[in-house]
Design a protein around this nucleic acid. Structure first.
Lengths: 333, 333
DNA sequence: GGATAACATGTTACCGATATCACAACAAGT
DNA sequence: ACTTGTTGTGATATCGGTAACATGTTATCC
């Protein structure tokens, strides 16, 4: 392996100091146009490659933003990530991604790993963190953005929406179409904090309307997806007809339930309404289309990127952005 | 912002040299057990966080592996990434992820960005790269792994499977159930190289059996998903019945077509067979289940991780691994 | 013409970890 | 007692850039 070409090598070849090379390669106007051109040409000829590691070390600015997601295998989180990473690439920042698998302990371990890379900001999904995690970032004075949630006591900034408000809309819609006996299908454990919030919000919304208590159906440990929705619906079989409507923690789960109903010969929405959450592609492609809540995953990414730009530019104002939600009525309710 | 706690600070607090701290934190046996314990405790108490940037700089090993995926919003690629990143985290390596959006130009730009971070290896999805990309990595002498494809002339290692073999199985299956007039639904442009290969392989497999030419139905520019499958099927309407079977470039597309058939009152598989590719969750949850090819996305990630471990350990043997495919017959054929 | 400003480039000292060599203290072998 | 080896720790230089300040050189002005 040939020795690395450094700025010093370029400097010697051109006959200037390495400082001038450093300036020229960053297109610093104080270097005369002629010298700059000569340096840039020589750098190219020698096959010089800029060493970001050295730069990050010297300037103490890593050029990294750390992002944690519960799962990368979720179209909404993936979309937020996509929007975010495209915007950040324009700012010359790179994203360090980590998945928590919906576990707080994993998040803590991940944050520890990510912090070792000196990120300039940390974006986490959800406002729930372990004490150790909170201590870690506070000790660093690191800027934090919580996204997808609007926590009561955010560590820093927040971009998200209100689950309570969304579920309130959903329950109101179901009631307005005559449904009263509701069930909720979600994860059994509380690992998916946001899923649990949706469940609790649905229960509260039903209670406030004087409906009978919402039955909670356990689809297994988080994360739950299509197959878990299908499995629990098939396990319950025609007992599902004890309810007027099944609210699902997400569209994939709702789709699983819907598919199972097809196999069970349960008429949706005739005998049973089904609703989801998240406006996933499957919800608006399947037949009938699933009634759901659109959470504008893309906007969350865009807004987070804006805040990140401000943070990197040195702005210290604290932001809290509600991107809102939208009820999308399909053919399942 | 509080000043960063460095090894020197820990060293002073304990009363040893920073070299000893460095050794102790890496669990170097030459440091006496007592001193080591004292150092590790003090480091914790002071809230010391290891600075990977400095380490990367000094050792000239970034601890990064660069990975490019066509899209993060694809359950199979996401699964490969998950398997890969979990295995790499155990080796203390971090993944730098980039998405090419199925465009070679974007890949080139991405590789350029990623290389500036001095990755110790580069994993790319697919064996098709621009000349500039090839030159970039060759000039660096960087180890490369192509995954998902088994290119004829890989840049380095390869972990994948044969699309031709998979499509051959699929066509054989359709023929064995009496289907002869085939159509293929995929992207119009060639940007999704692997999708185009599946199409061409299907065409070849049909030709070799003396079937009538496969009709190619254009679902739009890559990437195509559920909604595009649904859209083109709805556009074609009952003209779909000119065919016995529709082979789709992926399960999501197949699901879109299947949903449209439901709306069009076309009986699947009675009047028309539908097949997908990739063994996505939707394929085995929906009703009827979609006939597909399982490509073991997880295994690809695991195998790539093994090769990466070998590369990082200094092994230079060239690997080429075929993870194979499996035909999964569902209710749509 | 001499003072001053504007411009172009160089010098030096780091950023935080670690490879390398040096060395002190003590044990074991002759 | 003296060499030799072992063990635990320290001093120093360095990885490749860049901030901050210093300096030399040319244009500009009264």
């Amino acid at each position: 392996m040939a020795a690395r070409v450094t700025m010093r090598d370029v400097a010697e070849a051109v006959g200037v100091s390495s400082m001038t090379v450093s300036r020229a390669l960053r297109d610093d106007e104080t270097v005369s146009a002629k010298t700059r051109a000569r340096i840039q040409d020589t750098a190219r000829d020698l096959g010089y490659v800029y060493d970001t590691t050295a730069q990050a070390f010297r300037t103490q600015k890593s050029g990294f933003v750390a992002v944690t997601l519960p799962s990368i295998n979720n179209a909404n989180f993936a979309e937020t990530y996509r929007a975010l990473s495209e915007a950040m690439a324009e700012s010359g920042m790179q994203i360090l991604l980590g998945a928590t698998n919906y576990r707080l302990e994993k998040e803590e371990e991940l944050v520890r790993q990510l912090l070792a890379r000196n990120p300039q900001a940390l974006v986490m999904t959800g406002g729930h963190h372990s004490d150790a995690t909170r201590d870690l970032v506070r000790a660093r004075g690191l800027s934090v953005i919580d996204m997808w949630d609007l926590p009561v006591d955010p560590l820093g900034h927040a971009v998200g929406f209100s689950y309570a408000e969304a579920m309130e809309k959903m329950v109101a819609h179901l009631v307005s179409t005559g449904r009263r006996k509701l069930a909720f299908v979600g994860a059994s454990d509380g690992a998916d904090q946001r899923g649990a919030t949706r469940r609790d919000s649905a229960i509260a919304a039903a209670a406030s309307r004087g409906l009978p208590p919402v039955a909670v159906l356990d689809a297994g440990p988080a994360p739950v997806s299509m197959r878990h929705g299908a499995a629990i619906a098939e396990r319950m079989g025609r007992e599902l007809l004890n309810f007027d409507a099944v609210l699902c923690v997400s569209d994939p789960v709702a789709f699983g339930v819907l598919s199972a109903c097809r196999r069970l010969d349960i008429d949706v929405p005739g005998q049973l309404a089904i609703t989801g959450f998240g406006h996933f592609e499957v919800a608006y492609t399947c037949e009938p289309r699933i009634t759901t809540i659109d959470v504008s995953a893309h906007n969350i990414g865009v807004e987070v990127a804006h805040i990140l730009d401000a943070i990197i530019a040195g702005d210290s104002e604290r932001h809290r952005i509600d991107v809102g939600t939208r009820l999308v009525v399909g053919g399942t309710s």
